[in-house]
């Protein structure tokens, strides 16, 4: 009967277990402590002392700069030229085609990148999980983790060389050797609007997929071997075990990873900044690079840049709220 789509024993048991735990948690709401605050503060004083540097860091680098948000209502071209303009920056913002182009690009690039990276990380995790030879598995893991530690600047330089249309370009040379393309038909991976995004996703997969497998491998290692043994005794083959035990066990982690990363999609900058060029701006410009471009020019308006940054933050904030809501629905608890 194993493999029948109706019978899913572990899923059923897991769900039951989770429901029971949740009910218990809801029933028993124990207060943290009955002692007065001053006593608790004194008792845990050294923890608070240890937390102080973190608090100072947060205040100095995260909260104090928030005061700069007020400049979105100003024209701020230099220290001597700060003028109140009300909502003019926002009116100007929405009338600029490059802004909307950057906004759409940000969403497209980030979401596709996120889905691809997660998908690849899951696939590789599953493959690694199936490896029997522990040494080979460790070596493979180390190799695929390494690109994560390479800076984006170095990555861009290396790929610019590898993807060159000239003799130094490894990929085009290989494609020519294999007869896939003819001489003179070399693919401009980084300087053509048709190929840039594909190349961008590929480089991202190469760089971040290995690192992304860590969390999935941790989940996989947490699955009880008893389940696999029981399934094996029942005659389940490898595919069956993967389909009926591994996949369902990973599902929650995949959703969690997706939700957590979805909240960060507006932060796309470095990878695009180092790989973009004048030819592909239309398909590569994202909000963060747009903000950089309008800020670091000979005649910046910091007020306008702040307005763009604020808009980006608002969208990011909205995404966090949506993700929090989705997380509560899916996992039973929020992300914030």
């Amino acid at each position: 009967m194993w493999g029948c789509s109706v019978w899913q024993p572990h899923d059923y048991l897991l769900q039951k277990g989770c429901d029971l735990m949740e009910k218990k948690m809801k029933k028993k709401k124990t207060p943290v402590s009955n002692k007065p605050l001053s006593v608790r503060l004194y008792t845990y004083r050294w923890f608070y002392v240890m937390f102080l540097p973190v608090l100072a860091f947060l205040i100095v680098f995260h909260y104090l700069p928030l005061a700069g948000i007020r400049y979105m209502f100003y024209s701020y071209t230099s220290a001597f030229n700060i003028k109140w303009v009300g909502l003019d920056n926002f009116i100007d913002l929405v009338s600029r085609p490059p802004f909307w182009n950057s906004f759409i690009n940000t969403l497209e690039l980030s979401i596709i990148k996120l889905l691809l990276n997660t998908f690849m990380a899951v696939i590789i995790s599953l493959l690694l999980n199936e490896m029997v030879n522990i040494y080979f598995k460790k070596i493979t893991q180390t190799i695929i983790y390494l690109p994560h530690f390479m800076s984006w600047v170095v990555t861009a330089s290396v790929f610019t060389l590898i993807l060159s249309t000239y003799s130094s370009g490894l990929v085009n040379t290989m494609l020519k050797t294999m007869g896939i393309i003819e001489a003179g038909e070399e693919i401009s991976f980084l300087t053509s609007t048709e190929w840039w995004r594909f190349t961008y996703y590929l480089i991202n997969i190469w760089k971040d997929t290995g690192w992304g497998t860590i969390v999935f491998l941790a989940t996989l290692s947490g699955i009880s071997p008893d389940l696999y043994e029981a399934a094996q005794i029942d005659g389940a083959n490898r595919w069956d075990r993967m389909r009926w035990i591994t996949f369902p066990s990973l599902a929650n982690t995949i959703i969690t990873v997706l939700i957590l990363n979805l909240a960060k999609i507006m932060n796309l900058f470095e990878s695009v900044f180092v790989l973009t060029n004048d030819i592909v701006t239309e398909v590569s410009q994202v909000l963060q690079t747009y903000t950089y471009d309008i800020t670091f020019t000979s005649a910046p308006d910091y007020g306008f840049s702040t307005a763009v940054g604020f808009f980006r933050s608002m969208v990011g904030c909205l995404l966090v709220i949506i993700c929090n809501f989705a997380s509560k629905k899916v996992r039973g608890r929020g992300i914030v």
């Binding site: 071209t77 600029r96 471009d293 309008i294 000979s298 005649a299 910046p300």
Partner: peptide, 9 residues
């Protein structure tokens, strides 16, 4: 100052 950098880009 307001428009030149966007135009040049």
């Amino acid at each position: 100052s307001k428009y030149q950098s966007a135009i040049m880009s």
